[in-house]
Write a protein that binds this DNA or RNA. Structure first.
Length: 439
DNA sequence: GATGGCCTAATTAGGACTTCCGGTGT
DNA sequence: CACACCGGAAGTCCTAATTAGGCCAT
């Protein structure tokens, strides 16, 4: 039913603050619909029918930043958008959809989820599990292609989905099965965005160039081992995996500095936690006994300064045509990245997810679907948004309005003559954020 | 009985580590 | 001496794609 192949849904968890600020509501459904400047990007969207991270994979990572109303908001958005995209299905809102498989990782992991800062949904339907990350390699595409050709030359048979290297593809299905297929590099990025461990165990030494340090290598290895259910994991073993990343162009070693590595690419919407005056680094003395105290005992209320490279959905315009897309839009690290001016840490709080509340929970699904339906039903109420003030939200409103019109036109072709119907060229209804009172 | 479609289980290939090791440098 | 670091080699685990076999309808 959707006829706009260039639509994507942006679950703009990262933009929540902006939307909230501008609109003045904390309950605004976080679905942002945007035009994709390059149609080919659609093929890279992660939320396609197997929507699971694109719904299939990374959606596990769809642990969205908790808003003040709780994490249900973003999850609602996510599933609701999926439902919209599948609305031609009679049971689009069925809870037996892949959502549960797709969106819910195992909940036990220490650090299981990746903060999803940007999610795109193919308007052509959640189709497929190409939850692929948009990567910008710092060091040439040539490396990637060389690696690919080298590794795949022996396989005449069939081609699997791309591997998660710089042209990373995330295998979302693994999450569905309760497995922990968060790759090590993803795991490290997670840690670097988690105030519980950053900068205590791992920290950025130069975020602009992707350089980070394992402040407490043993603790990080232990966390990794716990995540992978490998109790014997140690830094030596983890380090071997890290060294394999050199060959694959995912990591570089920083010469002359111990325990210091460099990502060759980074998500565009990476959340940077830099050393603040709150959390103390814990040097690699590993004085905690047992991983449990180590893993869970980290204080979450540091005053670390947090900055994010994600500014707003408007950064869509900065999307270069990339080979892959995913929840992560990656920066080429050799190019100067524009980091937002440092702000008072107080303002940045919402960026960080809270470890105990960030996981999407299955019981939220009914609320989610209902919420999106309400949103659609209230399109006409929207009046307050202006393009200049909150571009993404405005686009959302516009596009949802268009969809609403199209759907209405398709379903009620013979409306009563007197009934007014928006015509295609008319200004689409604007969205108003739903508040709890609206419900 | 032959054919085709559908489903499921088994097999296979490949990716991402993990484990072990010997060695070097600090 | 401890530790970080390197990289080879073999192994494990998991997943996706393919294949084979059974069942059923026509």
């Amino acid at each position: 039913m959707l006829q706009q192949p260039e639509l994507i849904f942006d679950f703009a968890s990262d933009h929540f603050n902006t939307s909230q600020h501008l609109v003045g509501h904390s309950n605004y459904p976080a679905v942002i619909v945007e035009q994709v400047p390059h149609p080919h990007l659609l093929s890279y969207t992660g939320l396609a029918c197997d929507p699971a991270y694109t719904a299939n994979d990374h959606l596990q990572l769809l642990k969205v930043e908790p808003c003040e109303n709780g994490e249900e908001e973003t999850m609602e958005t996510l599933v609701a958008a999926h439902s919209i995209l599948n609305m031609d299905c009679a049971d689009a809102l069925s809870l037996e959809q892949p959502y549960t498989q797709t969106f819910f990782p195992s909940l036990d992991d220490v650090i299981t989820t990746t903060p999803v800062t940007q999610v795109t949904l193919s308007a052509e339907g959640v189709s497929g599990d190409n939850d692929q990350a948009q990567w910008h390699s710092m060091h040439a595409d040539e490396t990637v292609t060389q690696l690919q050709s080298r590794k795949r030359s022996r396989k005449p048979r069939h081609r699997r989905s791309d591997s998660p290297t710089p042209d990373l593809t995330l295998k979302k299905d693994k999450y569905n099965k309760g497995g922990n297929t968060l790759y090590l590099w993803q795991f490290l990025m997670e840690l670097l965005q988690d105030r519980k461990v950053c900068p205590r165990y791992i920290k950025w030494t130069n975020p602009d160039t992707g350089i980070f340090k394992l402040v407490n290598s043993k603790a990080v290895a232990r966390l990794w081992g716990k995540h992978k259910n490998k109790p014997d994991m140690n830094y030596e073993t983890m380090g071997r995996a890290l060294r394999y990343y050199y060959q694959r162009g995912i990591l570089n070693k920083v010469e002359g500095q111990r325990l210091v590595y460099q990502f060759t690419s980074l998500p565009k919407d990476m959340v940077y936690i830099t050393d603040g005056d709150g959390t103390q680094e814990e040097e690699d003395d590993d004085h905690e006994d047992g991983s449990s105290s180590n893993d869970e005992g980290v204080s979450g209320d540091s005053d670390s300064t947090v900055s994010s490279s994600s500014h707003s959905v408007d950064e869509e315009e900065s999307y270069p045509p990339q080979k892959k897309s995913s929840l992560f839009s990656l920066h080429p690290l050799n190019a100067p990245r524009t980091r937002p001016p440092s702000r008072p840490s107080v303002q940045r709080h919402p960026i960080l997810r809270q470890s105990n509340s960030s996981l999407i929970q299955e019981q939220h699904l009914p609320i989610v679907s209902a919420e999106m339906l309400r949103t659609l039903q209230n399109l006409q109420k929207v009046q307050s948004l202006q393009p200049g003030g909150c571009a993404s939200v405005f686009k959302t409103a516009q596009l949802l309005g268009s969809l609403y019109e199209q759907q209405a036109a398709a379903e009620v072709p013979k409306e009563t003559p007197g009934q007014e119907k928006p015509h295609p060229g008319s200004k689409p209804p604007q969205l108003v954020p739903l508040t709890s009172s609206d419900q």
